[in-house]
Write a protein that binds this DNA or RNA. Structure first.
Length: 210
DNA sequence: TGCCAGGCCGGGT
DNA sequence: ACCCGGCATGGC
């Protein structure tokens, strides 16, 4: 919580995924896998312009046509398949009804999402938190890098361990999880580059090793 | 120009 | 149980 307050004080609210509706967040969560958000926005704009930004439209569209629309997001063939996998499951299991899906219990819904090919932990947690407003902390490469560089977690921590590190010590608050993750991405982008120390003026303090 | 981006899967040790 | 290559566009 102390780190959260430092980051919030340094950067202010990041307002991630506020509007646009939960379905767009679901789509964005898949498209942003290992990809810059700016490219994801282009892909989403393509979908919107083509009238394909709805569960029904994505259910009907063919994977190869979808791939061309999401091309700017990179890995477009694989992401088109992953989106189709998710949407097919979503209709088979929940009849394309987001409210029904998010009325499930968090843990069981998370397991269901993870069973869809192409939906891993971060994507599942992003959907749960940012689309479903469910308290599932999102871990990503920045989270790991920032925490391990500052020796807040062991180098060999797993995803689930890092997730538990936050969930076990923070109040279970959706808005807090939302903002904290966004702030960790922000501080990671600004100060914790993949290479080099370059941690001057980091709100969490400097680290000396790389 | 090379490196990086809000990962995940599948195959090989 | 890890480790690694593949997937691909756009910005700096």
């Amino acid at each position: 919580m102390e780190y959260y307050n430092k980051l919030l004080g340094a950067f202010g609210p990041q307002h991630w995924w506020p509007g646009d509706g939960p379905f767009e967040v679901v789509v964005g969560a898949v498209l942003t896998q290992n990809t810059n958000w700016g490219n994801v926005e282009r892909a989403i704009n393509n979908l919107r312009a083509a009238g394909k930004l709805s569960p029904e439209a994505l259910h009907k569209i063919k994977a190869n046509e979808l791939a061309q629309l999401v091309r700017p997001a990179g890995y477009f063939n694989i992401k088109a398949k992953r989106l189709k996998n998710l949407i097919n499951w979503f209709f088979a299991r929940y009849d394309g009804d987001l409210d029904r899906m998010f009325s499930q219990k968090l843990d069981s819904l998370r397991e269901e999402l993870l069973s869809v090919k192409g939906i891993g932990r971060e994507t599942a947690d992003s959907i749960l938190l940012y689309a479903g407003n469910m308290p599932s902390f999102v871990v990503d490469a920045y989270t790991y890098r920032v925490l391990s560089r500052h020796h807040l977690i062991p180098e060999d921590s797993t995803y689930e361990e890092i997730k538990a590190f936050f969930e076990d010590t923070l109040p279970e608050d959706v808005q807090l999880y939302n903002e904290y993750h966004a702030l960790l991405v922000r501080v990671g982008k600004t100060f914790c580059k993949p290479r080099g120390p370059d941690c001057q003026r980091c709100p969490l303090g400097e680290f000396l090793d790389r």
